[in-house]
Design a protein around this nucleic acid. Structure first.
Lengths: 134, 134
DNA sequence: TATCAGATAGGAATAGTTCCTAATTAATTA
DNA sequence: TAATTAATTAGGAACTATTCCTATCTGATA
């Protein structure tokens, strides 16, 4: 994505701009994938040699709070961050732990939760993927 | 639940019986709640003074593998275990982190996942609960 | 009763994340 | 523009849920 667009995107979410933030946002929007903090850190280290893991965590939290990305708890002990905001589900393979995007044909059911403020909905399938089934 | 029923339940899932397993299963079936390993451990310690946390983890993993309970990844870094197997969703309050059961009016959409073997489906809502909204 | 496999206890090790402090950078004001 | 203040970042220590490892114990089998 163009730097200009990235800057706009940050500003429109009330986030002031920095090199680190631009790079992290760009990285997350590049592919429709789900990254853990460590991965973001490793991938950007070459571009920003002084980058620290704390900054990655700070930034991901901030982005999540401000609605720039989705936080996913798909497997034991790890958090994934997803830049794709369009409603979709995930499939996690219990063997290889790969995560697949699942397009939704129907919209998800509305929850009967009077008095609650719903911010996010998450649908996850678990099972064995085609490669691991062979 | 009666001890006899518990034993049957274990055996029918191909799990050999032990004091620890009976107590852990009983505890998980008592209330429709979601416990972390640590909580199970603390609650059963008085009944089984020699109980070890490793055993709780072992047992919960075994139960989950054999389909006696559901493993939930609802929040950062923690795993919850749910003895209620009937299809239902969860609501997690981002402030107090309480977990609520959400009955489902409709069945969840079938995933378009050719070649994948689906073992579990999980629907989670995140937001702010009524108490935290006040 | 002796043997063997499975289960358990206990603690050490691991890994993802958070917390803390100092240094750096950006924004604000004069 | 210079000085002041606020926000951001880097780095590492601390924390915590979970796993791993080993010795002990238990129960089943012969």
């Amino acid at each position: 994505m163009l730097q200009k667009k990235l800057i706009e995107r940050l500003k429109s979410h009330d986030i002031s701009v920095s090199m680190q933030r631009l790079h992290i946002l760009e990285f997350l929007l590049e592919k429709p994938e789900h990254y853990r903090a460590e991965e973001v850190y490793e991938m950007l280290k070459p571009k920003i040699p002084t980058l620290s893991l704390s900054t990655v965590y700070n930034t991901l939290h901030l982005f999540s709070e401000r609605g720039l990305l989705k936080t996913l708890h798909l497997e034991e002990g790890v958090t994934h961050y997803d830049g794709v905001l369009e409603e979709h589900a995930h499939f996690v393979c219990e063997k290889c732990l790969k995560i697949f995007n699942v397009p939704l044909k129907e919209t998800l059911p509305e929850a009967d939760l009077p008095g609650m403020k719903i911010l996010q909905v998450n649908l996850t399938y678990r099972g064995i993927c085609h490669e691991c089934l062979i």
